[in-house]
Design a protein around this nucleic acid. Structure first.
Length: 288
DNA sequence: CAAGCAATAT
DNA sequence: AATATTGCTT
């Protein structure tokens, strides 16, 4: 029996490239206008009239999508977002702008799980998780939706497996694992997730609580947001994945806060289940 | 308003 | 299928 395409696809998932490797980080992917136009609205920012809308939501990433193995670096990213893209005449699409669907890559999910783990179940609410993840482009709703699903996944698991559940690579319902579960299963589930949320870590989350949507730091953080231009099809031809990075804003960021943002830097993503034990230093504290 | 959750929509 | 969105409750 030959392993069908799913095989390479699976491997691709696991070996998921880190942003650093793929992203030359040549330019800001999301323009400030766009950024504020979109996600900030989640909290407040009633209305900013900005008649300037760039539609450069995504750029043709140099990334070879799994399917485009032999991509020639063509940018067919085309419209996307609508930005209206090319819409032609109308350049007032800002109102109807829709964000592309977020693709939860294993790496991104890992970040999500890490955030939840470090926050504790109790403090792990969408807004906080979102802030802790520090991923540009992530909205509260993105997280909320994912969190909901994730909780269902956890519950589902508590029922059938007490032992294999958390194991990275564990978690396989006997016959009940859907592809969705594969995503969730790709990251190690902290043990206390599966139990009753007894009061753990009564302290510590303080450092994590930052109020700011706008990111600061002009350094490498990890932002791996992939957006689907169209429906995801794992077929050759049309499949674009874009890794976006943090968009740096010219915003003056105050250093007056005695609290260090070590939050973001405290993250160390390690791929434990990876075949390769390449320890990814997402936050090279040394290169600073 | 934010969060949680089920149902529903795309 | 995977996410987003909506409705309703807390």
């Amino acid at each position: 029996m030959k392993e069908d395409d799913s095989n390479w696809f699976s491997k691709w998932e696991e070996q998921l490239p880190n942003p650093e490797e793929l992203m030359p980080l040549t330019q800001t992917l999301i323009t400030p206008d766009l950024a504020i136009a979109f996600d900030i609205g989640t909290s407040n920012t009633p209305h900013n009239h900005h008649h300037h809308h760039h539609r450069s939501l995504q750029q043709p990433s140099p990334i070879s999508t799994p399917s485009s193995q032999h991509n020639s670096g063509e940018f067919d990213s085309s419209d996307l977002g609508g930005g209206g893209g090319g819409g032609g005449g109308g350049d007032e699409p800002a109102r109807t702008l829709k964000r592309p669907r977020l693709v939860w890559t294993p790496q991104l999910h890992k970040r999500f799980v890490d955030a939840v783990a470090h926050l504790g179940i109790k403090n792990a609410v969408p807004k906080t998780i979102m802030q802790l993840m520090s991923v540009d482009g992530l909205t509260r709703e993105n997280v909320a939706s994912h969190l909901q699903k994730y909780r269902l996944y956890l519950k589902r698991m508590q029922g059938l497996s007490s032992g294999g559940g958390g194991g990275g690579g564990g978690g396989f319902g006997s016959g009940g694992d859907s592809a969705t579960d594969r995503l969730f299963a790709s990251s190690p589930v902290p043990p206390h997730f599966l139990h009753q949320p007894d009061n753990y870590l009564p302290y510590m989350p303080a450092a994590a609580l930052q109020q700011q949507q706008q990111q600061h730091h002009h350094h490498q953080q990890m932002a791996a947001v992939a957006v689907a231009g169209h429906h995801l099809h794992r077929h050759f031809g049309s499949n674009h994945q874009f890794l976006s990075r943090q968009s740096l804003q010219p915003v003056v960021h105050r250093v007056g806060t005695p609290v260090h943002n070590s939050v973001s830097s405290s993250y160390v993503d390690d791929l434990e289940s990876a075949q390769e034990k390449k320890a990814l230093t997402l936050f090279p504290t040394g290169d600073d």
